[in-house]
Amino acid sequence: MSDQAILSAPGAAAEYDSAPATKVRGYWQSVAYRLSHDWITLIFGAVVLVIILIAVFAPLLAPFDPYAQSIVGRLKPMGWRGHPLGTDELGRDMLSRLIYGGRISLIMGLAPVAIAVMIGGTLGVIGGFAGKVANTAIMRTMDVFYAFPSILLAVAISGAMGGGIFNGIISLSLVFIPAMCRVAETATSQVKNLDYIEAARASGAGTFAIIRHHVLGNVLGPVFIYASSLVSVSILLASGLSFLGLGVQPPEPDWGLMLSTLRQSIYVDPLGCAMPGIAIFITSICFNLVSDGVRAAMDVRI
């Protein structure tokens, strides 16, 4: 509609030679356009936004202190004495703990992926663009990490380094770096041999300028898409680590840890036991679907 207006704007005379005015919208505009028509992604994106906002404003939203215990109010059902979702096995408010747990889950979901993008992406671009020796050195080292199943690797590293949020982030980063590196390396080596790299060299660009403009420009798309799909995996793995006692330590409110401690009371209070699991499920599926939607909108193939 507005495109039509632009076309016919200067004078009524038909511009014969400019008939196929292909310039409609830029790349990011067209991505935004496609996203705005994808209701599923928009809805789940809104849920992700809500989860993030809840995590950010947790102190304002939580009705109780998530650490306050009560020996008489253990495993109480929903609505007991003003606890909307009841209490856990130590009498702490379930809703407050879930709200605070979101903070840790998001950090554990985003931080390892961000670190892996930086380190793995850099290594991958170097490996893809540099010669045979550097490529072999980097990629074969990554293959060694690849040999382990991701949860096993995370458990092994966390187990060796001890629990805690910081160590959990490091171990998950190490799990994601090889995959990130592989994606960046593949994208780079595909781009490297294309004509426009030679054309850039032919117009006088140095190696650094070529990497910065032409390689990164074409590699960041797939890397970003892949990274967004890893966020939900990271949340799940972090919960798994906490469940096994290798991630977040008590009394921190973390969904995986809550699941682990509430597990013992599954016959007494099955609903309360399920709540952290539901929170993990909703968060990870929302991130997953948003990632899928963004990938479809960006039309990038991994």
């Binding site: 426009y196 054309a199 006088g204 660009a205 032409h214 074409n218």
Partner: peptide, 21 residues
């Protein structure tokens, strides 16, 4: 020298231009 003194036109206009720019 490349680009300034000597310039080159490639065979495939499809692949010789970077799609993201």
């Amino acid at each position: 020298f490349r680009g300034g003194t000597v310039a080159m036109i490639f065979q495939e206009p499809m692949t010789a231009l970077d799609p993201v720019y």
